[in-house]
Simulated assay, not measured.
Amino acid sequence: MRKYRSHVFAACFLLASALVAVLAAVPASAAASSTICTGSSHATYNPGLTLTPQTVSVTETDVYSSCTSTDPTLTSGSLSLAAFTIPDAACNDLSAGGSGALTVNWNNGQSSTATLTYELTVTGGILQTVGTGTITAGQFTGATAVFTWVYPIVNPLLCLTPGGLTTHDGIITAVITGV
């Protein structure tokens, strides 16, 4: 019986050693990643928003000034959205949903392209757009992504100025998890 126990102990020890060796060989990149970033967003409207609905071209620059990531080299990032149009946009109606891609350029020289579906809501004087989807290229490919833009509702009096409202500033967050 004693000989049987020593064989079982030896087999368990070898199995545990093999498991430790396999786990040690898994690259760090295979571990689940997460990145949370916050920053500011600046949108420019052309022509400026007024109270009359019109097709408006929008350009946007976002700066993620603070990031916490499982990648210690990633501490900030930025993205610029080339001109896109919003039909029938007005100061009191910026409804823009749909889907599209954006690319964040990280401070570590990497980038992440996300394909997102956007939903816009207006609640309690806050305009919020949430884009949910997946990182489809670059760093974190395959991860889940949630990008959120929060802007204060525009004061309608600003829309009565000559040229209308031409810029809008807000805050942004990006949450990337998984892989």
Rank of each mutant, 00 (worst) to 15 (best):
G170R: 08
N105E: 14
A174M: 14
S34Y: 12
P152H: 06
P47D: 03
S40W: 00
E60W: 02
L120W: 07
M1L: 12
S112A: 15
D88G: 01
V122Y: 06
D62G: 00
S33W: 06
T173E: 04
V175K: 06
F140G: 01
S112D: 14
S78P: 01
A18Y: 13
V122H: 05
G163F: 03
V56D: 03
V146S: 10
C91S: 10
V122I: 14
V20H: 09
V63S: 08
L19E: 04
V20P: 01
L94C: 07
I172G: 02
C12W: 05
T144V: 10
T161A: 15
S41C: 07
V175M: 06
H42T: 09
A90D: 04
A24N: 11
L81M: 10
A21L: 15
L165G: 04
L157A: 14
V8L: 14
T123W: 04
S34E: 13
I126P: 02
T161I: 14
N105W: 09
D88I: 01
P156L: 15
S40P: 00
A83P: 03
L79E: 10
N107K: 07
H7M: 09
A137S: 15
I153V: 14
S65D: 13
S112I: 15
V154A: 13
L160V: 15
A24F: 11
V150L: 07
L160H: 09
A137I: 06
D62F: 00
G133M: 08
G98K: 06
T52I: 07
S40C: 00
S99M: 09
S33C: 09
D71H: 12
D93K: 07
E60K: 02
A10C: 10
F84Q: 05
V154L: 15
R5T: 12
S41I: 14
G109S: 11
I171Q: 12
S41W: 01
V20M: 10
G125I: 07
T148M: 02
G98C: 05
A145S: 14
A10D: 09
T161M: 15
I176M: 02
Y45K: 01
N155F: 11
S66M: 05
S33A: 14
L74F: 14
P152R: 04
W149F: 08
L49K: 05
S29W: 00
V26M: 07
I126Y: 08
A25L: 13
C12R: 01
S95Y: 13
W149C: 05
T166V: 14
D169L: 09
I135P: 02
T70D: 08
L74I: 15
T68M: 02
